[in-house]
Design a protein around this nucleic acid. Structure first.
Lengths: 192, 192
DNA sequence: TATTTTAACTAATATCATTAGTATTTTATT
DNA sequence: AATAAAATACTAATGATATTAGTTAAAATA
């Protein structure tokens, strides 16, 4: 019966997923929990900080799922699996993803740290593609950019036709990886 | 001395660029214009609609600039020029770009139409790259995704070191175009 | 059991967005 | 130029929401 901080974040995240980030208010969260608005301050510091916590939770969950998806895989396969997992999370939790985007502009150091964990995973996988490590940052910037941009722009369609967009993302990543291999592969064989 | 609708939008856009989207309020806009808040309703319908107008104006300006940048160019060169122009606009107007992202989730049909103009330009340019038209939508989705994602994630660095990020974006687009050519070029020569 | 912490409450305040109603100025029409 | 119409500003409410202050009851801890 007693409300926990996790309850508050979960409830707010649910509202975001169902009604969009703009409908997350302390009033709405409190009503969902059957408590009065000021009582929320026993668990959070402010609306802004609550939104940040939604984003951070979401990012951490995404990171965990992506790590799971990468287990037992290397190279292009691993990158594509992680990409699909990224998209799937977004389909499942569009409101949380919207909040993550919000946190891109209103984040703290904590936000940056969690994002770095994501970068770290992707870096390991990119290196397993046998790219020249000299160019790894360049490669990471492109991969993260594609993932973020592609999924964001396709979310509308992804919600109604997830399988098609999943397949399309896989193809898109293939294309990008093709370009990356052509430019950055290590130890190119002499016979091309 | 008389305030016009264009003044209101311009003022609000300036605030967004200087202080971020979250600091755009009717109060702040009215103060900047030296009028009282309710007077703004002679020019706009609501705060939301004002934000949408900022986004629409910004998108239209971007479209115009990108068209200019494409004039006299075709193929990969044209795509890269347009991409750099896209990034430059974002560097110059981060707040407006933030508003455009907001409009991605809170847009109207008008928003969609303006976005379609952008797609249309990019489509023409992509076709001039000699890709197989069958795959043009796939190609567009990748190009728009890269542009949006890459620039968004690099904005932080772009504001402090614009030239480096410009160069990096150009390289990234090269990589993507390399992949696209490898997969989608028309009339592949038999001797590859 | 006594103490301290936690989590809820009511009441009050502050900030905005928005509406209603009015006056004034500008613009257009005759 | 005189008048009608439209546009733009204002003051005064209202309403929604976040946030703070101060209080109380329940739960955890010593």
């Amino acid at each position: 019966m007693k409300t926990t901080k996790a309850d508050v974040i979960q409830t707010a995240a649910d509202i975001a997923d169902k009604n969009g980030l703009s409908n997350v208010s302390l009033k709405a969260v409190a009503e969902s929990l059957n408590i009065r608005t000021p009582s929320l301050y026993n668990h959070i510091d402010s609306l802004e900080s609550l939104l940040r916590e939604i984003a951070h939770n979401g990012m951490k969950t995404m990171n965990e799922r992506m790590m799971q998806a990468a287990i037992g895989k290397i190279g292009d396969d691993a990158v594509k699996s992680v990409g699909i997992t990224y998209l799937d999370y977004m389909i499942e939790h569009p409101g949380i993803y919207e909040t993550i985007q919000w946190a891109t502009w209103h984040g703290t150091e904590e936000t940056g740290k969690i994002f770095d964990n994501y970068l770290s995973l992707l870096k390991t996988l990119a290196l397993s593609c046998n790219f020249n490590p000299t160019n790894i940052d360049e490669i990471l910037n492109l991969l993260t950019g594609v993932l973020h941009g592609y999924t964001t722009l396709q979310l509308r369609y992804a919600l109604s036709r997830p399988d098609e967009v999943r397949a399309a993302l896989s193809t898109a990543l293939d294309t990008v990886l093709t370009g990356l291999h052509q430019k950055y592969d290590q130890h190119k064989k002499e016979h091309l």
